[in-house]
Amino acid sequence: MPSRLVSLLLLVFLVASFSAVSFAADTEAKPFAEKRVVLQISEDSVQRQTLVLNVANNLIRHYGPDKVDVEIVAFGPGLNMLIKGNPNDERINSMAEQSGVRFAACLNTFSNMTRTLGYEPELNANAVKVDAGVVRMIDLTEQGYVLIRP
C-alpha cells in the first residue's frame, strides 16, 4: 500500500510540474514579440471584461500577433470571465487560438470560489491556473511585461 501512495503522489507532482512548466514555456512562445503586455481583470463586470478583451485585440491589431505577447490575468471577481459559460467564452477561445493570447486564472480565487459554491466550476478550456494572479502579474512585470489595468 505505501508504494501505491508514493506512486500516486509522484504522479500528482509530475502532472502539476508539467502544467506549470508548459505554461511558463508559453511566455516564450512569441520569441519575436517586441511588446509584452499583461492585462489585469479583477472585476465581475461583463463590460469591464469586454474592455480588457478589446484592449488585447487592439494591441494585436496594432502590432500584429507575432509582435505582441499578451496575457490576461483574472483574479478576485474577475475570475468569472474565465468560468465556462461566460458571455465572452467564444471570443476568449478565438483570441487564444488565433492570436495566441494567454489566459491565467488565479488558483487562490478558484479555490475560494469552489469552497463558496460547494462544487468546482469549470474553467474555459484556454484558461491555465496559476498559484496567485497578483504573483503572476509581478513575475511577468519582472520579465519586462507592461502591466495594464483597463
Rank of each mutant, 00 (worst) to 15 (best):
D44R: 09
R91W: 01
D66K: 14
F75R: 00
G118A: 14
N86A: 12
S17R: 07
D69W: 11
V21D: 03
E122L: 05
D139P: 00
V15L: 14
P77S: 03
A96Q: 04
L82I: 09
Q98G: 01
L8Y: 15
V146A: 11
M137F: 05
K67C: 03
R149Y: 08
L79P: 00
Y119L: 01
N126D: 03
F110T: 01
F32A: 04
P77L: 03
V15D: 07
F110V: 03
V135I: 13
V130L: 06
Q143A: 14
E71S: 09
E71D: 06
R136C: 05
R102D: 02
A33P: 05
L117P: 01
V130I: 10
L53A: 15
A25D: 10
L147A: 13
P77H: 00
Q49M: 10
V101R: 07
S111G: 02
V12P: 05
P150W: 13
S7E: 15
P65H: 12
V15W: 12
L11G: 04
E97R: 13
I83A: 09
R4M: 09
P65F: 12
A29N: 10
I41F: 05
A104I: 01
F75C: 00
V37W: 04
D89A: 08
V37R: 01
L59S: 02
N126V: 04
N54H: 14
H62P: 10
T50S: 14
R91K: 13
P87G: 10
F103A: 07
V37G: 02
Q143K: 15
Q98S: 09
T50M: 06
V52Y: 03
V55M: 13
V73N: 03
V52T: 14
L147M: 13
F13K: 06
D44C: 07
F110G: 05
L107I: 04
R36V: 04
R36A: 13
V52A: 09
D139Y: 10
D26Q: 14
R4H: 06
R115A: 11
D131E: 02
N108T: 06
E34T: 12
A105S: 01
S17I: 04
S111K: 12
V130M: 08
Y119V: 00
S3C: 08
L51R: 15
A125E: 12
M81G: 02
V55C: 09
F18G: 00
V6S: 14
P77V: 01
D131M: 02
V70F: 08
L82F: 13
A56N: 09
L82R: 04
P87D: 12
N108Q: 07
F110W: 07
P31I: 06
V46F: 02
N108F: 12
A29T: 12
V15I: 14
Q143I: 10
N88A: 13
P31S: 10
T27L: 15
R48K: 14
R91H: 01
D69C: 06
I60Y: 09
N108R: 04
L117I: 04
N80Y: 07
S3Y: 06
S99K: 05
V52I: 15
M113C: 03
R149V: 10
L51P: 04
E90V: 02
A104M: 02
V46E: 14
M113F: 02
S19D: 05
L51H: 15
V15G: 02
V6Q: 15
S17T: 07
Y145H: 13
A74V: 10
